[in-house]
């Protein structure tokens, strides 16, 4: 067979190597299809009690039952998670930048941060309840705290890894400290921060579930507790799926938003020996 590219006239850049498309697609479908098949077999076949594993039909019914409650629950949860995530991200990055910039801030904060960083945020839930009571405020605070720790640590670490040659070059070109932070440090650390921001975004949904479990009157987590009291496993799973969709959507949104800002890091040389070993084909 002759491999003639469709746009043979145009200069063809070696982008992704077009493997045999159908074969790859088939390979990628194997695991999901097997899982779905297994699920159907176990649930419809009556092998597993629906209390533990409801069938697709039961989930669809549960979804229809929850339909009326979902919009307001989603609105509450998304509002709370995003608020906590944004506050926590801003706080964490600012704290990291501040500690890198000022030795006073570093002396004041670094020991406290080092000591408190390994403390699991979830362990603070009873304290939060005691101190701040029940309500949106403490829930948002919990999410913000969890995300800010992730970003504070990453920011500081990323700044430590800034290539000194770039800082020296900026210095010899007459850049002030402030300019270096704005024009050299920030762009240098941005790609690293991005990874941390995605991790923090994913974590913020988990923090939200925990926050809602400590007492809320609305939201997806609350809905989940209610369904649990009715032993409605299908309902719980529906909420889990909603969480998954929301988390995926936020992750995609972050990736989409950062694309224009990290164009300088994107590599065209995806094909090649290294890519095939690193699984980047």
């Amino acid at each position: 067979m002759t491999a003639v590219p469709a746009n043979a006239a145009a200069p063809v850049r070696p982008r992704r190597r077009p493997r045999v498309g159908a074969r790859r697609l088939a390979l990628r479908a194997v695991v999901p299809l097997t899982l779905i098949g297994l699920w159907c077999l176990l649930s419809y076949g009556g092998i597993v009690d629906p209390l533990y594993l409801p069938s697709p039909t039961e989930m669809w019914n549960a979804f229809n039952e929850l339909r009326a409650d979902l919009p307001s629950a989603i609105a509450t949860t998304v509002g709370m998670t995003l608020t906590g995530f944004v506050i926590g991200t801003a706080l964490g990055v600012s704290l990291g930048l501040l500690m890198a910039y000022s030795s006073i801030a570093r002396d004041l904060l670094s020991d406290v941060l080092d000591l408190t960083r390994p403390v699991p945020v979830f362990a603070l839930i009873p304290l939060f309840l005691l101190w701040f009571g029940i309500g949106r405020g403490p829930q948002i605070a919990l999410i913000a705290l969890g995300t800010s720790v992730i970003l504070g640590v990453t920011t500081l670490e990323a700044i430590r890894n800034v290539n000194p040659i770039h800082v020296r070059a900026a210095l010899t070109l007459g850049a002030s400290r402030g300019t270096i932070y704005r024009r050299v440090v920030l762009p240098s650390i941005f790609p690293h921060l991005l990874g941390a921001i995605r991790v923090a975004a994913a974590a913020s949904w988990g923090l939200d579930v925990a926050a809602e479990l400590i007492g809320s009157q609305n939201g997806l987590g609350y809905l989940m507790i209610v369904r649990q009291q009715y032993l409605d496993t299908a309902g719980i799973l529906v909420v889990v799926v909603v969480y998954a969709v929301l988390a995926l959507a936020l992750d995609r949104a972050i990736v989409w938003l950062e694309r224009p800002l990290t164009r300088w890091t994107h590599r065209d040389q995806r094909a090649g020996v290294a890519a095939s070993i690193l699984g980047r084909a």
Binding site: I165, R168, A169, L171, L173, G174, R183, S188
Partner: peptide
């Protein structure tokens, strides 16, 4: 350090996040 004594370093010191023109304009 100061721009009256600009330096070309041994290592690659080009800012990878700036285009060629923006690099040249930095100082």
């Amino acid at each position: 350090p100061g721009p009256d004594r600009a330096v070309v370093f041994q290592d690659d010191a080009v800012f990878p996040w700036l285009s060629v023109a923006r690099n040249a304009a930095f100082g």
